[in-house]
Design a binder for these strands. Structure first.
Length: 568
RNA sequence: CGGAGUGUAGCGCAGUCUGGUAGCGCACCUGGUUUGGGACCAGGGGGUCGAAGGUUCGAGUCCUUUCACUCCGACCA
């Protein structure tokens, strides 16, 4: 391709709303163009990269036996009403009506559509297993789109769904997909980690996330320094922590603690390790059908509440903060809450670490008073669960190694769904005994357009992008230093033609611009290699350089084709 | 939705406090010079100043309403 013919509107300055390197370089390099909040156009260069990434995904999935289909983007709402997600999915689901006043949604994910497709054509266990996928647009009306392609509202996603006769076969496919995803991300040159995850709104039992390690990642993941354990903070587990200090013994008593509300204050007031304080976190829980209630979560003062875990412990849809006025209405006092003398009908949840806790200090549910010397005895029907965040330095449950935090970009997520969708949608088949059974399903997603951003987050420098081998829009760029110098442009064109003949994906910068200008654009766009045709053609020499700076050498013109073919 | 902020040329911004010819840099067009690290000279095109309403002889600037976008928190590929 000739640069002079391509629409590559590179920019010296980025729009000021771009903060991440991937966002800045994708816009400055003329890959994408913003059109609205979370909406982007792909320009020729961006489209090439996107297609290359799509191809890698497609090749690996096809190799693993999955079949590509393409489902409608506009989906009748009736399917969503049937699965019960029309209400539950919330505002992220873009709903609209057609001219006949029928409800439709723009697909944010396609479980319903795919199940519907399969139930119409698959009737027998003999047709199973089946793994269908598509690489198509999705629309999620995100509360806060940001970071360019990282969190758009409209985005390209590969979503796959597998159908099985039984749980074991679904698990086999799940592992196959895990391996396939690893191959895909490895081919794209990404440094990633597979971590255990919360399955969130999609539902189901087991789920794993593929995290590209990058400081700008929006997810916190917990990884073990000694083994390969990794988990999203929302699902991470660690060995129970044992406090080395003993708590000062005290008899159970009410203690005046004027204006001592926070864990730090209490800790210094009683000269006691926060581990022996009972922290009480009040939240309002929202359930299906608009039901809501106040829930108190009790944990060690040294721990932090993990909201997703807390949410799961009570099967709620959402947890929201509440203010002290709302607490007062039900007879609670912020800063002095505890598990005893609670007003009736307040739901409570205890963290695992409090079981058998002794010599504790907790709020007395009365202004300016705490209890000391509390030995906790929980009732049989108390809700006890893991509701706290793993902390850095906690011990790994697999090897006892030290756990640390790192940041990740979620580029893939695979779920063991079971019959979560097939049952309500009555997607059933006949097994070998002629019995009707719902399909056992798995679902597998990759954020394809997000991958563009993720690759750059991991591969860039202060000058621009550094595309990996399988994602780069071009393998090599031929740069003509001075286009007006006929010898230079002739030789450059000849090299360009010969490389094309060798099936090398080559770009020639044949614009009538100065050398420095073209180099800046080359570096910004981030093609891995360049052949620079400049003044030294007089001596029969051109330069061969790599974008990462590893290679910089002068090569005889007669050898340049071979040199490029060798390395690309 | 809560908190903070911004809307002026394709992009980056000044002008708004104190109302009086809509500006600067980059980009773009024409001509010329230049050609190894984002050149220079000369000339030129491009604006419903986010939108609506109001005050005023006169509004980018003041008032009211509204919309959009961005940043920090809960969602997710």
């Amino acid at each position: 391709m000739k640069f002079s013919n391509l629409l590559i509107p590179t920019l010296k300055e980025a729009p000021n709303d771009a903060t991440l390197p991937s966002h800045i370089y994708l816009i400055r390099g003329g890959f994408i163009q913003g059109v609205g909040s979370g909406l982007y156009n792909f320009l020729p260069l961006g489209k090439i990269v996107l297609d290359r990434i799509k191809n890698v995904v497609k090749e690996e999935l096809d190799m693993a036996g999955a079949q590509e289909v393409s489902l409608g983007f506009v989906t009748p709402a009736s399917l969503w009403i049937e699965s019960g997600r029309f209400e539950k999915y919330g505002k992220e689901l873009l709903r609209f009506k057609d001219r006949k006043d029928n409800d439709f949604v723009l697909g944010p994910t396609h479980e319903e559509m795919m199940v519907n497709l399969v139930k119409q054509s698959v009737k027998s266990y003999k047709q199973l297993p089946l793994n269908l996928y598509q690489i198509n647009l999705k629309f999620r009306d995100e509360i806060r789109p940001r970071f360019g392609l990282m969190r758009g509202r409209e985005f390209l996603m590969k979503d796959g769904y597998s159908f099985h006769a039984n749980e074991d076969d679904m698990k086999r496919e799940f592992s196959l997909m895990e391996e396939t995803y690893k191959k895909i991300f490895t081919r794209l040159g990404l440094d990633f980690r597979v971590v255990e995850a919360d399955s969130g709104a999609i539902g189901g039992t087991g789920s794993k996330e593929f995290m590209v390690l990058a400081d700008s990642g929006e997810d916190t993941i917990v990884v073990c320094k000694s083994c390969d354990y990794g988990a999203n903070i929302e699902a991470a587990k660690s060995m129970p922590y044992i406090c080395e200090e003993n708590a000062p013994k005290a008899n159970f008593a009410k203690f005046n603690t004027p204006e001592i509300k926070t864990i730090e204050d209490l800790s210094s007031f009683f000269k006691i390790n926060p581990y022996y304080l009972v922290k009480t976190v009040a939240k309002k829980a929202l359930y299906d059908g608009g039901k809501e209630e106040i829930v108190l979560f009790f944990l060690r003062g040294s721990d932090e509440l993990q909201e997703i875990k807390a949410l799961n412990s009570i099967n709620a849809n959402d947890l929201i903060d509440i203010n002290s006025d709302e607490l007062e209405e039900v007879g609670l006092v912020a800063g002095f809450m505890g598990p005893f003398n609670l007003p009736n009908d307040i739901k409570t949840v205890f963290d695992n670490s409090l079981v058998g806790g002794i010599n504790l200090v907790c709020g007395a549910n009365e202004k300016d008073y705490h209890y000391v010397g509390l030995d906790l005895e929980l009732e049989k029907d108390a809700i006890i669960d893991d509701i706290v965040s793993v902390k850095e330095g906690d011990k790994c449950i697999h090897c006892g190694g030290s756990l640390v935090y790192t940041k990740g970009i979620e580029v893939g997520h695979i779920f063991q769904l079971g019959t979560r969708y097939s049952e309500p949608l009555k997607a059933e088949f006949l097994d070998e005994n002629g019995k009707t059974k719902p399909f056992v399903m798995g679902t597998y997603g990759i954020g394809v357009s997000r991958l563009l951003a993720a690759i750059i987050e991991q591969h860039h420098d202060e000058k621009g992008c550094l595309w990996s081998k399988e994602s780069t829009p071009f393998d090599v760029c031929v740069i003509v230093s001075n286009l007006k110098d006929e010898k230079q442009s002739d030789i450059a064109l000849k090299i360009y033609d010969e490389l094309k003949d060798k099936k090398i994906n080559v770009l020639i910068d044949d614009r009538n611009e100065r050398f420095g200008f073209k180099m800046k654009d080359y570096e910004l766009i981030g093609v891995p290699y360049a052949v620079i045709v400049g003044k030294k053609v007089e001596e029969g020499i051109v330069e061969f350089v790599s974008r990462d700076g590893e290679i910089m050498k002068e090569i005889d013109i007669s050898n340049i084709i071979e040199a490029v073919v060798d390395i690309v």
